[in-house]
């Protein structure tokens, strides 16, 4: 039981990171109906930006306050990643809006390959690791010599994720931008007719998606302290799984899907086999798409001629 509790804590932490990335997939899919294959690599780029910002603050400016460092790193990563995704949308996806259906997906695959290899070429192929930013933990209870702990960094991840998700929910539900986004999701032509700048709204969607991925990236860096150029692929596919499981296009679905995938993965590693932990997530993806293509919270996909 104590192991189960510990895995529950680990799973929720991992799940919040997946959930943040999954929102990016689900938002972009909701608004332009495209699987943004490069999103996992945008996440990886954000981890690198966070890493560089962290090193800049700590080794160059000599800031020792962890809270301040983390805050600045978060902001820097969000801004630069948002810029990267904005440019990607302008360059690689916008010209393809009227093209045939697989075109944006192929372009996104190209972008994904480009991004991971760009980081490999510019930053080198080796793992980059830093010493842990936040140490220490709460001991929740001890049973049979097994301590169930809640590390401080997990707590930070939970709080940051929850607070920023609340901000994001406010943005989508209450602001004009969010209204424009929801309008574009339903009918782009009609939205344009009533005076919504569709291109700008889509750009903003990519910006928000990237900012959320950057939060996930910063949390990832703080949690694991190690990153390599190839680390975008697997979290990307898992977050996509989360988005599909929650029902693609549904924002609460993405978060819950992310938590579920995080829990499934940690439980699977613990109780079944750690070697096959990626198989678990990939199988969930295949099984969901085959048997429950609309996901837990999504609307069924109606085929129109």
């Amino acid at each position: 039981m104590e192991v189960f509790f510990q895995q529950l804590i680990n799973g929720i932490t991992l799940g919040s990171i997946y959930g943040l990335i999954a929102i990016g997939y689900t938002m972009v899919f909701g608004i332009i109906g495209m699987v943004n294959f490069a999103h996992g690599d945008v996440f990886m780029v954000s981890v690198f930006i966070a890493l560089i910002a962290f090193l800049f603050l700590v080794t160059w400016l000599g800031i020792s306050s962890i809270a301040l460092t983390l805050f600045v790193v978060l902001i820097v990563a969000m801004v630069f990643t948002a810029l990267v995704n904005w440019v990607i949308e302008r360059v690689a996806y916008r010209p393809l809006r009227g093209s045939f259906r697989l075109a944006p997906l192929i372009s996104a695959i190209g972008m994904s390959i480009f991004l991971s290899n760009f980081v490999q070429v510019t930053q080198g192929p080796r793992n980059k690791s830093i010493s842990p930013m936040v140490q220490g933990e709460f001991v929740l209870f001890t049973k049979n010599d097994f301590q169930v702990t809640l590390p401080y960094k997990y707590l930070i991840i939970w709080i940051v994720t929850a607070v920023l998700l609340a901000c994001f929910w406010y943005l989508v539900a209450k602001t004009p931008l969010g209204r424009a986004q929801r309008a574009c999701e339903q009918d782009q032509k009609m939205a344009a007719l009533v005076g919504i700048d569709v291109d700008r709204t889509i750009s903003m969607t990519f910006v928000i998606a990237a900012a959320l991925a950057a939060i996930a990236g910063t949390m990832y860096l703080m949690n694991y302290g190690v990153v390599s150029f190839a680390d975008g692929f697997t979290p990307g596919v898992k977050a996509f799984t989360a988005a599909v499981l929650g029902g693609i296009g549904s924002l609460p679905g993405a978060v819950i899907g992310g938590l579920l995938i995080g829990l499934i993965e940690t439980m699977w590693s613990n109780y079944v086999s750690i070697d096959y932990k990626d198989v678990a997530a990939f199988s969930v993806l295949a099984i969901t798409l085959i048997f429950l293509p609309q996901g837990l919270f999504g609307r069924p996909d109606v085929e129109k001629v």
Binding site: S107, G110, M111, I113, L115, F118
Partner: peptide, 8 residues
């Protein structure tokens, strides 16, 4: 890198 760029 070139493969990806060429695809886009």
């Amino acid at each position: 890198l070139l493969f990806g760029f060429a695809m886009v």
